[in-house]
Amino acid sequence: MSNDIAYPVFRTTDLALALSTARRLMEFGRCEYSEVSVYAEFRSVTEVRRVAKELPEAWFRGQAEYEEFHGVPWDEQPPLVVGVQEPGLPADPAAYEGRLPVECGLSELPVGSIEDAFTAAIGTNVGWINWEMLSWPDAPESGFQGEFKHAAVTLLFNARTRELDEPAEDHTVLVHVRSASVDGRQLREPYAYWLAEQVGLTVIGPGQRL
Rank of each mutant, 00 (worst) to 15 (best):
M1L: 13
I5K: 05
Y7A: 01
P8C: 03
V9F: 08
L17K: 12
A18C: 02
A18W: 00
S20P: 09
A22F: 06
A22D: 03
A22Y: 06
R24D: 10
M26C: 10
G29A: 04
C31Q: 13
E32W: 13
E35G: 13
S37P: 07
S44N: 08
T46S: 14
E47S: 14
R49K: 14
K53N: 12
P56S: 07
P56W: 05
E57F: 13
W59R: 11
R61N: 12
Q63H: 11
A64S: 13
E67L: 13
F69K: 02
F69A: 03
H70E: 14
P73E: 04
P73Y: 05
W74I: 14
L80S: 03
V82Y: 04
V82E: 03
Q85V: 08
E86C: 10
P87T: 03
L89V: 06
P90A: 01
G98H: 00
G98T: 00
R99T: 02
R99G: 03
R99H: 02
P101M: 00
V102C: 02
C104Y: 02
L106M: 14
E108K: 12
L109N: 05
E115C: 01
E115W: 02
D116N: 12
A117F: 03
F118L: 01
A120Q: 09
A121Q: 06
I122F: 04
N125T: 09
N125Q: 10
V126C: 03
G127F: 01
W128F: 15
I129G: 00
I129Q: 00
I129L: 13
N130I: 10
W131S: 00
E132T: 12
E132F: 10
W136S: 06
S142D: 15
T154F: 08
T154L: 10
L155I: 00
L156Q: 07
R160P: 10
L164A: 03
L164G: 03
L164Y: 05
D165W: 04
P167I: 04
T172R: 09
V175E: 01
V175Q: 05
S179T: 13
S179E: 11
S179R: 14
V182D: 03
G184S: 04
Q186E: 15
Q186I: 12
R188H: 11
P190W: 05
Y191E: 04
Y191W: 06
Y191L: 04
Y193A: 12
Y193Q: 13
L195V: 01
E197K: 14
V203C: 04
V203T: 05
Q208T: 10
Q208A: 07
